[in-house]
Design a protein around this nucleic acid. Sequence first.
DNA 1: ATTTGATTACGAAACAATTCGTAGAACAAT
DNA 2: ATTGTTCTACGAATTGTTTCGTAATCAAAT
Lengths: 127, 127
Amino acid sequence: MTEVNHLKATESELEILQILWEKGNCTVREVHEILEKSKESGYTTTLKLMQIMHEKGLVARDTSAKTHVYRALQNQEKTQQHLVNKMIDNVFNGSAARLVMQALGNHSTSKDEINAIKEYLDQLSKK
Amino acid sequence: MTEVNHLKATESELEILQILWEKGNCTVREVHEILEKSKESGYTTTLKLMQIMHEKGLVARDTSAKTHVYRALQNQEKTQQHLVNKMIDNVFNGSAARLVMQALGNHSTSKDEINAIKEYLDQLSKK
DNA sequence: ATTTGATTACGAAACAATTCGTAGAACAAT
DNA sequence: ATTGTTCTACGAATTGTTTCGTAATCAAAT
């Protein structure tokens, strides 16, 4: 268990990681433009956040050109896993099943999604 | 849609709500003793937190005796729902299924739990 | 070459959350 | 009634996060 990771990202940092995971490589401006859609905040705020993330080792950046290019260093799955586990412990008293049902209950899920999950469960059962 | 709720609890406040949900009515000391097991912090810290939660309307308290007794005012399911939805949006790009699989993958789930979820899925399918 | 515009760097303000120390009230035990 | 213990109240320090203003740098356009 080499815990290389476990720099916990803040709420805002997660939003940015999110974008980097999806887009791959981004400039500050690109990130900022996406952020702007759902948020009110200035460009230098985004910049600062990404600089801090770099200090913390959450992202890497290429500074060879004037405009720096960032990419996520945190692994998406690991981060998701970590957050989900935390949530199960903190909010669902350790019951993954409860969280699952809660998640499926409201967040109207398509038949395809439901089937995908069923298959997944079958595989799990076999072990 | 009477939004009575939606005072968002902080991380620490959630831990306390958790305990109150499980135990029902608690004194500060009871809460603190449980908290202590997983956390390093003083009694007055817990007290202060619970006082703040009272100000915010997250908990009610009975002050008729010297030692006050607290209980949660936030509804557990609603709070869970809210947090899960937020997580699906923020961290799983809107896919509940992804969260579910992530949740089940690592957090070693018992056969009983898996079966419970399957049944639940069957019910969902029928609609 | 000068202006204009976009970029980074960075300090510091503003805000939020957590932690604790200390004082005083309540009460039980002596 | 005095002492010791447990409790609440509350201010204030500490720590963490987010926000922005300003200066410096660079490059493109005039």
